Simulated assay, not measured.
Amino acid sequence: MGKRSVMGFIVVLVAVLCLQPVFAQGGKEAAATADMPYKGQTLTISMWGYNMDLLVKNVLKPFEDTYGVKIVTETGNNSDRFTKLAARKENPIVDVAYFAGTWAYEAMKQGLIQPYDPAKIPNLANIIEPAKDPLGGRYAVGYTIQHLGLFYRTDKVAPLTSWKDLSRTELKGFLSIPGITTTYGPAIVYMLSKAWGGDFSNTEVGWQKIAELAPSLVTAYNNSSELNALVIQEEVYAAPYTSFSWGNIKASGFPVASVIPEEGLVGSFSVASVVKGTKNEDLAHLFIDHLLSYEVQMAEAMDLVDSPVHTGVKLPAEIGENLTYGDELIAKLHFFDEGDTAALQADWIARWNKIFSK
Rank of each mutant, 00 (worst) to 15 (best):
E64I: 01
G136F: 05
Q208N: 14
S268T: 14
T278W: 12
R138V: 06
T219M: 02
N223C: 00
E29W: 11
D165N: 03
G8C: 00
F82S: 01
N353C: 10
G149V: 07
D327A: 13
G312Y: 03
S5C: 02
P240H: 03
I145D: 12
G136H: 04
A299Q: 11
P122S: 14
K132F: 00
V14A: 15
R138H: 15
S273H: 12
L315E: 08
E263W: 04
V14M: 14
P118L: 05
T341M: 15
V271C: 10
V141Y: 01
Q208H: 11
P37Y: 01
V236A: 01
D80K: 08
M302L: 15
S201V: 09
H290A: 04
V275P: 15
L60A: 06
Y50H: 11
H290D: 03
A350S: 15
V94I: 14
D289A: 05
G267D: 10
G2H: 03
M52L: 14
L124S: 00
G339M: 09
Q25I: 11
L315D: 08
S293G: 09
G173K: 06
L19K: 08
A104F: 01
L315P: 06
A343Y: 04
L43N: 00
E321L: 09
L148H: 07
A229I: 00
S258H: 02
F200N: 04
L160C: 09
S162M: 02
S216F: 05
S243Q: 14
L150V: 09
Q20N: 10
I127Q: 00
T66F: 02
M36E: 05
L315H: 06
G185T: 05
M7L: 12
D340L: 12
L85N: 01
P130V: 05
G49R: 07
I45S: 04
I93D: 13
D199P: 04
A239H: 01
N77L: 09
L304G: 07
F200K: 04
M298D: 12
V94F: 05
M191N: 14
N223Y: 00
E226G: 01
T181G: 02
S216N: 13
Q345H: 12
W196S: 06
F23L: 12
E235Y: 04
V189F: 03
S307L: 13
T242L: 13
G49L: 06
G320W: 05
A342N: 09
K354I: 10
I349R: 03
K109S: 11
N248F: 02
N58A: 15
N280Y: 03
I10S: 03
V22T: 09
L19S: 11
G320E: 07
F82I: 01
A317L: 10
A272Y: 14
S224D: 05
I288E: 00
N58K: 08
V94N: 08
A301F: 12
V189Y: 05
K120A: 14
A30W: 11
Q25E: 15
R138W: 08
L292I: 07
F269D: 04
L17C: 15
A272F: 13
A284F: 04
A31L: 14
Q345C: 02
R351I: 07
N222L: 01
W348P: 03
